[in-house]
């Protein structure tokens, strides 16, 4: 009985350790992705790509129609 319980608790502890490490590495990954996302979505970069690569322009006042709902 005692031996079985001890054995069991060891197994569970190993599992906890594994889960912890997975959590740790996932957190690292998440932080990295968050940083990457914010680097890529940097306004300067977005603006430049929008203006030069995709040819986006500011819409002129007279081209805007307002619709009241």
């Amino acid at each position: 009985m005692v031996i079985y319980a001890k054995y069991n608790s060891r197994l569970i502890f190993i599992e906890i350790q594994k889960a912890r490490h997975e959590l740790g590495s996932l957190e690292v990954e998440w932080e990295r992705l968050m940083l990457e996302e914010s680097m890529l979505s940097e306004h300067n970069r977005v603006e430049q790509i929008g203006r030069s690569d995709m040819g986006l322009i500011n819409v002129k006042r007279k081209d805007i129609r307002y619709i009241k709902l």
Partner: peptide, 9 residues
């Protein structure tokens, strides 16, 4: 909710 300061490992 946009991150302005993030700690990276």
């Amino acid at each position: 909710g946009k991150p302005l300061a993030v700690s990276a490992p």
